[in-house]
Design a protein around this nucleic acid. Sequence first.
DNA 1: TCCTATATACCGATGTCCGGTATATAGTGC
DNA 2: GCACTATATACCGGACATCGGTATATAGGA
Lengths: 108, 108
Amino acid sequence: MLREPTFLILAALAPRSLHGYGILRSVEDLSSGRVRLRAGTRYAALDRMVSEGLIVRDGDEVVDGRVRHNYRITSAGQEVLAREVEHLEANASVAKRQLARILDPGLA
Amino acid sequence: MLREPTFLILAALAPRSLHGYGILRSVEDLSSGRVRLRAGTRYAALDRMVSEGLIVRDGDEVVDGRVRHNYRITSAGQEVLAREVEHLEANASVAKRQLARILDPGLA
DNA sequence: TCCTATATACCGATGTCCGGTATATAGTGC
DNA sequence: GCACTATATACCGGACATCGGTATATAGGA
């Protein structure tokens, strides 16, 4: 299972390319403010995900004198994300069933 | 967010007490064989979870000359598990929305 | 003037898990 | 009789991802 920061970065990049800071804001937004990426996490995670083929560098732009490094998800990254969604749903589902068995031990 | 082994151990213990090996089988079962706990992971995780108050030792029994150490979830553990289920569902939901935006960029 | 937002980037510490190993009994297959 | 698998405990070193802090720089609002 992917870790939460890795998962949310992939989710952030699913619909469009983003640069580092945009990823940071998107992750915060997607998690309703719950997950705020640390600077150290972000760069380590992006480098790792590039080396794993989940994302690629998508060209650098210069905006207001600052360089932006853009990142784009790969089709492999999309597949990993989609599979991960299934894992999350499966885990949530079994855990809910187990919690329900506290009150009703008769269930399978 | 909890890691998958920790999450599945909590889920395994939600409806009833189990001993170490029973937890191992239950986790494998709950994850449809996807997650097989390593011996090292199991004991480290159980000790940690006891110290965090998520689970407690629930008495030792002797079965067929072998000692079994039983573990039971606490109400704090139940709450953590229930909250975690919500996180998983929320993450799965936003990721699905993001993946859908690949095909239909018009969605919010 | 200070704080926040935008934007990059590194580094040490921490925590969780992986992978291997050890020990012991009981049952099944050859 | 021998090997393998299941049941059951337990430790240890290593790997890896994230945390938390820090550094640098510009722009705009309080």
